[in-house]
Each structure stands twice: as C-alpha cells, then as structure tokens.
Design a protein around this nucleic acid. Structure first.
Lengths: 245, 245
DNA sequence: CAGTGGTCTAGACCACGCT
DNA sequence: GCGTGGTCTAGACCACTGT
C-alpha cells in the first residue's frame, strides 16, 4: 500500500503540495482497517515524503527552496571584510540583506569539555566563551549554532558582549577586529536524524535528517574558533570547491 | 513513553547494542495496549535510535565505525598517482589495501540527460559513458556511485572496458592515463532519506539518512567527470579543509 | 516449543481545522 | 458540526529465532 502511494507521488499522479486521500477513503479503497492505513502513512512520513496535519489531512511534501552553504562563502566574506563591507556567512549564503534576519543569542562562560577542547587543541578546563545562536528569516528558524571562542582572547572586548550581535560582517569580521585574519577553515559534516530539541526549534517534520557541521577556524596552525552548526537537511546543499594545484 | 525510553538509552541505562524490554514486557510496565507500545517503538526506530529484528527483539543501535571522506583524499590520491603508486579514493579513505574490496560494475553508453548535461556543461544528447559501481568491504555494500565520462574522451580506451575495474589508482589514475591531470574537484552535498533501492542494496535500517554527493572533476575549466555518490549517513563523516590564502 | 516482532481487524474517544 | 488526523484498547494470526 505504501509502495502504491509512493508510486502515485513519484509519477506525479499526486503532485507535491497536494492532499492525499483521507484515512477513511484509503480504508475503503484498499479494504483495510484504519490501523493498517496509518502504518502505511507512518512509513511514508518516516521517508520524508509526506507531512500530516491534525484536522487538515496528509500532504505530499512540497519541494522546498534550498540554501547553499559553500566553501566559497568564506572567501567572499573575507573579501568583504577586507573591503570594509558588511555581511555574514549566513547572509552571504542567503543572498539576503544582513538586516533581514533575526538572531536569538545566549552567551556563557564555560570550561572546555571534551569535544571542544580537543578541536581547539587545549587542555580540558580552559575557559571558553560559548555563544548559542538561532538564525531566523521571516520568523522561522533556519539554523542553530553553538560557537566557542577562547575566553583569554575575547574577554573584555566588544565580541564578548551579546548586545553587539548581530555583528555586521559576522564571524570573520569579529576575529578581524581582534587582530586575527583567518587563513583556513575545516568543516566536518555528518548527517543524522534531529534530536528532540532540534526538531522543535527548527520545526523539522518527521523523516527529515539534519546536517551537522563541526567547524574549526584557523589562523595559521592555531584554532581560533570552534562551532557546531545544525541545519535541516531538506533546506541546504553544501558546496565545496577543492583546488588541487 | 518514547521519551522515557530515549532517556534510558541516552543516560546509558540501556547501553548501545543491548536488547530493549520486549513489547509484552513494556505493555505490562506502562500498562498500555500493544499498539501503543509499537507506536512508541516506531518513533524511536524513525529517529534512528533502535533497530528491530523479527523473532529476536529490539536493540539499541550500536555505535558504528565511521569512514571519513575528505577533501584531502584527492590530494593524497594525486600524489600517489604522480609517484606511480596504487590506491583509489575509496581505499585511501578507508586506509585499507586496494585489493580488499569488491566492486559491482555496470557500464552503459547513454545520451546526456539533464542533471548530468548541465554539470558537464554540454548540450543534452551528447553521448556519455555511464558507469555504476557498488563498493563492498567484507561483503557488505558501503557506497553506491554512478560516474559519467564523455564518451568522445574514453571510447576505445582501456577506461571504457569494465574488465579493467577495479582500476589500480582509481579515477585520478584513469584520467591520468588519458592524459588529463585533474586540477580541482567540486562536491555538492545533500542529506536525505534513502530511496527504496538504496535502502535495499546498502542495507540501511529505518531512521538512517544518506549523504548524496554530486562530484564534478575539473581539468582547468573543463569538467571531465561527473559522479553521484550515495553513502549511508551513519557510516561517514565528510572532512573538508578550506584554504583561504 | 515458547517467545519475539510483523501485520491486521474493529471498535473507541479526543483535539484540531474549517465552514 | 463535521471531517480530519492523533491516540488508545483488545483481541487475532503469522513468520522468525532461539533452545
């Protein structure tokens, strides 16, 4: 039954965004009990093909606009900063004005625990500034991130003050203002299903994975920032250009 | 109920790889009907936290070894080829001997359809050599890929002969043998749930996404190869190093 | 063989959306 | 108020795994 419905959707017989037959209708069409219908629909939902809304119906998932997170954004951002322009890697990707998004922020001073400590190459316990961000456009959350900076590097600077966020020019610009010009970025990417809190704040429907990026920002051999970035998998395409010469 | 069980797993009360209480036991413990128990377990399965086996039980998903697909592999591979050594990007990642894996292969000559044609920058209809591969280690499929080459470039060469696969030195070496030394690679990455056939051949359990990589291999400004690579999300970590200088 | 998960039926009540 | 999906109960038979 799930196969049959999947076929109808793939072949376009039930176009994206449209309503599937109701559970009662499917019971009649396939001559099965409601539990069986619901099992089939649960499968399609877990595959990310449909979304169900209480009191409305089950919809074929519409094709969503896809953001692009690319390696080139760092190069573009660096250029901007050097030219003294504004923008953040978030807005450079989105190609939206840097003022058109909102930011939830939460700053804490924490001792380095193990994943972060190792990525920084410092001994656990070293004090870090932890900054949590939720980026929103048009009011909907698009990205969650947790960024770590060495506290010794930013204490008593404007960077450590949440009131200065969103910072025009973003991370690259912040580090620049501290006297650090980034020379390399390392990104490690995994795909996994969202945790319950990620599912909530990013409003991720069933059957949609997230892309989790662990980013290390380098100035020569030194790691000056570590960040964990989580984005819904149906809304991003990562784009990396690797020069071999 | 799903929350409670998730907590027990996260906190280590039910360690990875171990058996969850049976459905009958859970019915008794939570005083609910079997359907309710099964709904909770279906949720955990969709989240990728558990796997169920008929006649055995439901297990907490064990932590799997993670392969690394990195940007550095292309640099390493290029070095190898220049030194005249063997290896493929697959074996360089895995750090296994190039002879320890097996390969399913299937070659066809096809006219360029739209995604591939656009990625090559050629007019649709241009003839391509399509090569489908399934990489296996220890008998289990680890990666599916479809690679396209311009037929005009490879017709009547050893590269177009399936009997020469697996080719020692891999793709980079094949292109080298044709007189092309690759200068850049572009990878576009998306995360999504597996299609039914991917789920089958890669034996992907419920709740595990795949990472799909669209790769363009460049010699200067020319695209000489296009490949679609699909790997189970719970078995890979992509690692990109971006130099900004 | 007993115990497990996989599948299915036939009811029921609820919360929500729309008209 | 009616139709929708969300949740739940109380049964049933099957296929598979282990001993």
């Amino acid at each position: 039954m799930a196969d049959e419905l999947r076929h109808r959707m793939m072949s376009g017989a039930i176009p994206p965004g449209s309503l599937l037959p109701s559970e009662a209708t499917l019971m009649a069409e396939f001559s099965v009990a409601r539990g069986t219908v619901r099992e089939a629909l649960a499968l399609l939902r877990a595959e990310g093909l449909t979304v169900s809304e209480k009191g409305r119906g089950t919809f074929v998932r519409p094709v969503l606009p896809v953001r692009r997170l690319g390696s080139e954004r760092y190069r573009a951002e660096l250029e901007q900063v050097r030219r003294g322009e504004l923008g953040t890697s978030f807005t450079v990707d989105q190609r939206v004005d840097w003022s058109s998004y909102t930011l939830d922020k939460e700053f804490r001073e924490v001792p380095a625990a193990d994943p972060a400590a190792e990525l920084f190459g410092v001994t656990p316990g070293t004090m870090l500034l932890e900054r949590r961000f939720v980026f929103r456009t048009h009011g909907v959350a698009q990205q969650m991130s947790t960024s770590f900076l060495l506290l010794s590097m930013v204490a008593d600077t404007p960077v450590a003050d949440p009131a200065n966020e969103p910072w025009p020019g973003g991370n690259t610009s912040q580090l620049h203002s501290l006297g650090y010009d980034i020379t390399a970025v390392r990104e490690q990417v995994v795909a996994r299903m969202p945790l319950p809190d990620e599912k909530d704040t990013l409003r991720i429907p069933g059957g949609v994975p997230v892309v989790a990026i662990t980013r290390q920002t380098y100035v020569d051999e030194m790691v000056v920032e570590v960040a964990d970035i989580v984005v819904p998998g149906d809304r991003v395409r990562l784009d990396y250009l690797i020069h071999l010469t």
